[in-house]
Every structure is written in C-alpha cells, then in structure tokens.
C-alpha cells in the first residue's frame, strides 16, 4: 500500500518504459498500415497512394498465402507437440533419483543456448546432408538409401531442428514445475489407491497445467517469428515458407512494399488472435 507521494513518483518511473514501448509499437505499425494501402515498389519507382484494399486482396488470394498459413500452423503446432510431450516425459525422467543429475541437466539444456543460425547450419550440413551428413552414414550403415532431408522432408526437418532448440526450454520449465509438486500429495494419492498412471493423469498433469500453458505461450511467441532457421536452410523453398517468411520475401527480396505490408498487417492480426487467447490464460494465472 502506498501514499500519494510514492504514487506520483511511481508514475514518473514507469513513464520511460511505457513511452518507448508505445513509440516502438505505434510508429512502425502505423507506417506499415499506411504502406499497405499503397502501390509501393521502390525498385520500379512506383509509389502510388492509395489503392484501397487491393494489396490485401492480392495477398490473401495468392496461393502462397494460404499455403504459408498452413505451413506456419503445421510448423508451430508440430514443434509445440514435440517439445511439450517430450518435455513432460523428459522432466519426469529427470525428476527421478539418478546419478549425475546435474550433468544430465546441463547436457539437456545446452541446445537452448546455441544461436539459431548455428544450429540450423550444423543440422543442415553435418547431419542432414544426403552425402556427408551423419544421418546419411547411418542410413547407409543399415543398408537404406540416404534421405535428402531438406528437400524431401523439408518441413519435418525444420520442425526437427527447431524442436531440438526448444525442447530444453520446455524440459527445464516443466522439470521445475514437477519438482514443486509436494510428494505428500502423491503419497496421499498412493494411499487412496491411485496407480502410477492415474497419479500422473489426476495429480501430476493438472499440477503441470500452468507450466504447460506458459511453455505454449512463450514458445508460440517465439515460434511465430521463426526466421533464421528457414533463412539458412531452405530459404523458404519446398513448402517451408511461413507467413513471416513470405512477408519478408515480399518486402525485402521482391521489394513490393505495399503487398508485403498488407501481409505484415495480416501477420500482426493473426498473431494477435493467438496472443489474446494466450494472454487471457496468463492473466488468469497472474491473479492467483
């Protein structure tokens, strides 16, 4: 509780952060909205205002839009599924009494600190390369024909690479959550005759609910803007063009600013739909 004096001081202290974030959010966003109503192609010297919703119409009706939305959903959904399910299992495993727990923890967490360009390049060349990659050796060792991962299974490959980066994150958070479960609760359930499986389903999983929500929220924020992994592997080819990447290409590669900006605004709207949904959950958690 506070007095009037501290309230005024508090407002002043919060002002810079609010101000810069407001500027950061509003000015570029307004510019993008403005460009999205223009036919703006600097390389050809075209900058006509205003063309109404033409850019939006063209962007949405182009075949690349729908496929990019599908790709985005598949990619984010796939990574979330792998990391959350894998994370829960791994967290439960690491929660067991084991020798060298600290070291295993370090091993598991390490990929999270690897910068995206590095992990993408390492996987692309040293593992997924159809000639010299380790997977190719492995396949040959078992007498199979090596797969050219990034052109035959490009979406799966990128999901694989990004999941490798984010699995540690999910594991670490879920492990923390598992460890905060009081063993008395589990013992009570055991006394009540719950089997290991029903203990997991009725006690552990609900306890992890909040952590899982948080993992999904934060990963979604980051995953919706996956860029570097696509940039250095497929460059958006072979059906790995997410919405983010499509907009990037329209804006910076083909320099069709109007069209790209319309796509950017759509990306913002789609991201906000997810965000509202997820923020509501976080907000509820904040109250507890």
């Amino acid at each position: 509780m506070a007095t009037q004096h501290s309230r005024a001081a508090a407002r002043l202290m919060n002002a810079p952060a609010v101000f810069v974030l407001l500027v950061w959010m509003l000015i570029p966003l307004c510019m993008t909205i403005y460009f999205s109503f223009m036919d703006y192609r600097p390389l050809r010297g075209v900058a006509d205002c205003c063309v109404g919703f033409e850019n939006y119409e063209r962007f949405v009706t182009s075949s690349s839009f729908l496929s990019s939305v599908g790709t985005t959903l598949l990619m984010v959904g796939g990574i979330l599924a792998i990391t959350v399910i894998g994370g829960v299992l791994l967290a439960l495993l690491l929660d067991q009494p084991i020798w060298g727990q600290g070291i295993v923890r370090i091993l598991v967490i390490a990929p999270f600190f690897v910068m995206p360009t590095v992990s993408a390049l390492v996987w692309k060349n040293m593992f997924m390369n159809p000639v010299n990659g380790l997977f190719a050796y492995l396949w040959k060792f078992f007498g199979a024909t090596p797969i050219d991962w990034l052109s035959e299974l490009p979406l799966f490959s990128i999901i694989w690479i990004v999941s490798w980066q984010w699995l540690p994150f999910a594991t670490l958070i879920l492990l923390t959550a598992v460890q905060s479960l009081s063993s008395e609760q589990l013992e009570a359930a055991e006394m009540d005759g719950a089997s290991a499986l029903s203990r997991f389903y009725y006690i552990i999983l609900p306890h992890l609910g909040r952590a899982i929500t948080v993992v999904i929220l934060i990963q979604t924020i980051f995953l919706l803007s996956i860029f570097a992994e696509i940039f250095v592997t497929t460059n958006g080819a072979f059906g790995t063009r997410t919405l983010t990447y499509l907009v990037y290409q329209r804006v910076l590669e083909s320099q069709n600013i109007g069209l790209g900006s319309a796509g950017g605004i759509l990306a913002v709207i789609l991201a906000n739909i997810v965000a509202i949904f997820l923020m509501r959950i976080v907000g509820k958690n904040l109250d507890n």
């Binding site: 506070a2 501290s6 309230r7 001081a9 508090a10 919060n14 952060a17 609010v18 974030l21 950061w24 959010m25 000015i27 570029p28 966003l29 510019m31 993008t32 460009f35 924020i221 919706l224 803007s225 860029f227 983010t244 907009v247 990037y248 804006v251 910076l252 600013i257 790209g260 900006s261 950017g264 605004i265 990306a267 913002v268 991201a271 906000n272 997810v274 965000a275 923020m279 976080v282 907000g283 904040l286």
Partner: peptide, 28 residues
C-alpha cells in the same frame, strides 16, 4: 511496489508488444 489499478493491464500490454511479429514492422 506501488501497484495501481492499471498495473496488471500495463504489464499485460507490455507483454503484448512482445507478440507483435517483427516482420510486420520490418520495412518501416
């Protein structure tokens, strides 16, 4: 330390700015 009625909203708003896809403001 000096939470007001709007503190929670401000915090959530700040978090929401993080959800703005970077690509939407790339060109500006």
């Amino acid at each position: 330390f000096v939470p007001g009625k709007r503190t929670k909203d401000v915090l959530m708003w700040m978090l929401s700015t993080k959800m703005l896809p970077a690509v939407g403001v790339l060109f500006p």
